[in-house]
Design a protein around this nucleic acid. Structure first.
Lengths: 208, 208
DNA sequence: CCGTTTCTATCACGTCTGTGATATAAAAGT
DNA sequence: ACTTTTATATCACAGACGTGATAGAAACGG
């Protein structure tokens, strides 16, 4: 028997490669079949419709990114025991999972942006889009809450700082997706680190 | 005689409406003809090809936004004579031209994002995409330079702060485009203002 | 008034799309 | 071994697409 789940993942991978390379509009059943090395009939056997395939691919993208974040989160210990510099480094590395810094993350982020834009006009993807967009700000809020609870920095207004951090992360990612050769990985990390440094470090502390 | 430039602008408007509403993939010659109330033949008379139409529409979007920024810039006086709070307000209002806060700006920003994503796979739009992406960071750099020259705040590293501000602006815009009902205009402005306040105000000054 | 350019309108062609229907092949269950 | 499910593979159809070609109509220049 063929492993259906594996096949579905394999097909989804083909979707992601195509979408990352040429955009979502290039993702047709025929193109996916060719990219995955399968026959159109086979692809259609595992996905009832084009829409089901798209939804699955978007779901896969979100889940992989989320899983990766959770994985990193578990590997990371408590930040409150670290020095501010170390805490910033840890947070930067953690959140870099959301930036297109290498081929894997570049594909994931790029495809997610493609899907998010497509979801604007596709009600069938709306819930996933909300989940993804909401995800960043929720994550930002948790980080701020944790920092506030550590009592190590003068808490700013989390109602502003959370969407601010979320916007910064998504903005870095978005711009890096659009102009990879213009936005180096180092610059992305430097910007993120600078922002986090102001969150972790007490406001009045200008010392480096 | 028919005003050709006006006609072209009229057709471009139809493109922008369609792209903002349903995405770029919904922008076909037939759809544009219907939306603009013209015949397909007429549309084709003013644009040799689909690609020429797309390029013109993207060019129009960039130019309109740029013109709006220049217009605001000229109406705004020198910031160095204002109080920090007033300067922040002025800057916020100025940069809000890049955020989808009302219907006009929402359409412009949304369409621009659509075009930027399309340009990833369309070499024919690459130069315009570079121009637009570069534009934000260039603008950010100018603002930082002006602030630094005013000598009123402790200058941070502009090599980090410029892309940081650019990422924040684009991030706010991007997220607001994706989830209009989730991101209120007030929140966008509050986030932008909070960021600018830290740039205009001396670092060591925690006073409100 | 007439020739010329500009504009509007329509047809046809080839290509690509998703999908319904169907056929063959392979594996599983009994 | 036989039936039933699962999987792979094609064909055909209707619709949409960009575009080349063409033909009237309208406005202009002389």
């Amino acid at each position: 028997m063929v492993d259906g789940e594996e096949r579905r993942a394999h097909i989804a991978d083909a979707v992601l490669r195509l979408a990352a390379k040429d955009g979502l509009h290039a993702v047709s059943l025929r193109a996916v079949a060719a990219e995955s090395g399968l026959n159109i009939g086979s692809v259609r056997h595992y996905f009832d419709s084009q829409h089901a395939l798209m939804r699955f691919a978007m779901r896969t993208t979100i889940d992989r990114t989320t899983a990766r974040l959770v994985e990193r989160r578990e590997k990371t210990g408590s930040l409150s025991e670290l020095s501010p510099e170390e805490a910033v480094d840890q947070l930067t590395e953690f959140l870099s999972e959301l930036l297109p810094l290498d081929e894997r993350r570049r594909t994931e982020v790029t495809v997610l942006v493609e899907f998010l834009m497509a979801a604007r006009a596709d009600p069938g993807l709306d819930d996933l889009a909300r989940e993804a967009v909401q995800g960043t700000v929720t994550l930002a809020r948790r980080i701020l809450d944790a920092q506030a609870r550590s009592g190590r920095f003068e808490p700013k207004d989390p109602e502003v700082e959370a969407p601010r951090l979320a916007a910064l992360i998504d903005g870095i990612a978005f711009r890096a997706v659009l102009q990879p050769e213009l936005t180096s990985a180092d610059e992305c990390l430097a910007v993120l680190r600078a922002h986090l440094a102001e969150l972790v470090r007490p406001v009045g502390d200008t010392q480096v």
